[in-house]
């Protein structure tokens, strides 16, 4: 007997919930040969606003968690992803139109990237912080602290649907930031499936918020939003990104300019989303 297939509804991920777009819009996702795969929610500026609000609410709690704990949570994401390798590989293969082996390689690379960044969570402060030499009986210590809410445009190019969003999200959140990320417009399915993984692997709701839809429509609202502290334009090379940079400057944001492909995993990327706090403390009461 034939069975009726149960297709999945791909929705947004905001504040730990999976709402449809406030606007009620959706758009079609097609795979190789223009084969229809699914409908994805098309986020509006109000979804972006809600996502920033959720990210702001979640950020202090996430930053207060110990660095070790954040590392454990990121590692947990890798563990849960590993358990769903097959599902992600199928999804990547369908949406990218690549061979199964190639899709599996992308999933594995994404899992390894989560592990790599998880390891840095309680180590980057040692590398990037410093005890500064000063001419006086003081300890002078610089420590990196999370900048706050990060808005990002995930890589949009072919072959980056899961690895690209991982390479943008993981370095931003490991130091205690929260993030609002606009997924690949053409291939957002893995990003939403990744949200399901995040929702079930101890990442507090609101720390990662995933919007699907048109980056050209949403990014300007995120770039000009006064409650966003940093802007990662990684996948924005096809947008009017100089305008986004200008809008971001009006509200004092850090801006990472577009990069082709998947951004390299570097310590600098972690450091970019931190602010250095320097404290003085007397060495003795003598």
């Amino acid at each position: 007997m034939s069975r009726l297939a149960v297709p999945k509804t791909y929705k947004l991920y905001i504040g730990g919930q999976f709402p449809r777009s406030e606007s009620g819009r959706s758009y079609e996702i097609v795979g190789a040969g223009d084969r229809f795969l699914a409908n994805a929610a098309k986020a509006s500026r109000k979804d972006a606003r809600d996502a920033v609000r959720a990210a702001r609410a979640a950020q202090p709690g996430w930053a207060r968690a110990t660095a070790y704990n954040r590392g454990q949570v990121l590692y947990r994401v890798a563990e849960v992803l590993e358990g769903r390798r097959g599902q992600f590989a199928d999804e990547v293969a369908a949406v990218e139109g690549v061979a199964d082996a190639e899709a599996l390689a992308e999933v594995d690379a994404a899992i390894d990237l989560w592990v790599w960044y998880a390891g840095w969570a309680d180590k980057f402060a040692q590398v990037m912080g410093n005890a500064n030499p000063v001419a006086g009986p003081y300890f002078n210590i610089s420590v990196p602290e999370p900048t706050g809410v990060v808005a990002a445009v995930a890589p949009q190019s072919r072959g980056t649907s899961l690895l690209g969003i991982t390479a943008v999200v993981a370095p931003a959140i490991l130091s205690g930031n929260s993030i609002v990320v606009v997924a690949s417009e053409r291939a957002p399915l893995s990003a939403i499936s990744l949200s399901e993984v995040l929702a079930t692997s101890d990442v507090p709701g609101g720390v990662v918020n995933v919007l699907t839809g048109s980056p050209a429509e949403i990014a300007p609202w995120l770039a000009s939003h006064a409650d966003v502290n940093a802007l990662d334009l990684c996948g924005a090379e096809r947008l009017e990104w100089v305008d986004l940079q200008i809008a971001a400057a009006q509200t004092l944001k850090r801006v990472l300019t577009p990069e082709p492909g998947v951004p390299a995993a570097t310590l600098e990327r972690i450091g970019f989303f931190t602010e250095t706090k320097t404290v003085w403390h007397t060495k003795s009461m003598l």
């Binding site: 606003r49 702001r56 000009s224 939003h225 006064a226 409650d227 966003v228 809008a247 009006q250 509200t251």
Partner: peptide, 14 residues
């Protein structure tokens, strides 16, 4: 009010 005046979303820092 700031949102209406400036055209972009404002935040608690303001």
């Amino acid at each position: 009010r700031q949102r209406l005046r400036s055209g972009h979303y404002s935040g608690p820092d303001y």
